[in-house]
């Protein structure tokens, strides 16, 4: 079990333990919307990570100067500023991706992950930890988006990242590209994660019960020997 106070844990925890989508159920709007293909998912995750990292950095640096009552308003302005920057840069340098992701780039402003991390972490921790936390959360977000995007792209268009994987005779499941497919796939993904967690928990429980029973047996033997 990783030492929870090391710097590296601040990064790693975002990948699984506190994965923003799969564990904390944050940021589901863009997750469902842009994962029609793996590439779109990756692009969205990178854009979000950019905003997340820089906002966390700035908020952490100025956290002691901002009075409590105006902190939410300040965070919002800072986040919205970085989102605008990302939006303009994408429109200028990557116009095709910008069109594919559409209105979901500006919606990064209300991505609960960013405000959530700002409130829960960046406002209370040093810049270095905040940046690592942000990068970790971003990486976890990227992982989840890539997985969801790949599944939907594979089953819906036979390709992953544009490379055809499934043979031609496989008829694509159009529903995967539509909203219904997004909901259902994400739901099943969550179900899988839960299944894994539940089985881990029940394994732990049976371990504890086994130990208790063994100890019980041992106590009985000791008692018998004494008599």
């Amino acid at each position: 079990m990783a030492n929870k106070n090391t710097l590296s844990y601040e990064f790693v925890k975002g990948l699984w333990d506190q994965n923003p989508i799969l564990k904390q159920v944050l940021g589901t709007c863009p997750t469902l919307a842009v994962t029609v293909s793996a590439l779109n998912g990756i692009a969205m995750a990178l854009a979000t990570t950019f905003v997340l990292t820089f906002s966390s950095l700035i908020i952490s640096i100025v956290r002691k100067i901002i009075p409590n009552q105006v902190r939410i308003a300040s965070y919002i302005v800072i986040i919205a500023t970085f989102v605008t920057i990302v939006d303009y840069v994408m429109k200028a340098a990557f116009p095709d991706l910008s069109k594919a992701l559409g209105p979901y780039i500006p919606l990064i402003v209300v991505n609960c992950i960013i405000l959530g991390r700002a409130e829960a972490f960046a406002s209370k921790n040093s810049p270095i930890r905040s940046v690592l936390d942000a990068l970790g959360m971003g990486a976890g977000f990227l992982l989840a988006l890539f997985i969801l995007g790949s599944i939907r792209e594979l089953l819906g268009s036979r390709t992953i990242l544009g490379y055809q994987i499934l043979p031609d005779f496989y008829t694509p499941w159009l529903v995967m590209i539509l909203p219904a497919g997004a909901f259902i796939t994400l739901g099943l993904l969550f179900g899988l994660v839960n299944l894994y967690n539940l089985s881990k928990e029940s394994k732990k429980k049976s371990e504890i019960i086994k130990q208790y029973l063994e100890q019980n047996q041992q106590d009985k033997i000791n008692l018998a020997e004494e008599n």
Partner: peptide
């Protein structure tokens, strides 16, 4: 494993 968020999402689908 499906209680809560998973079944909600599938229903939404």
């Amino acid at each position: 494993s499906m209680k809560g968020v998973p079944i909600t999402l599938i229903t939404a689908g």
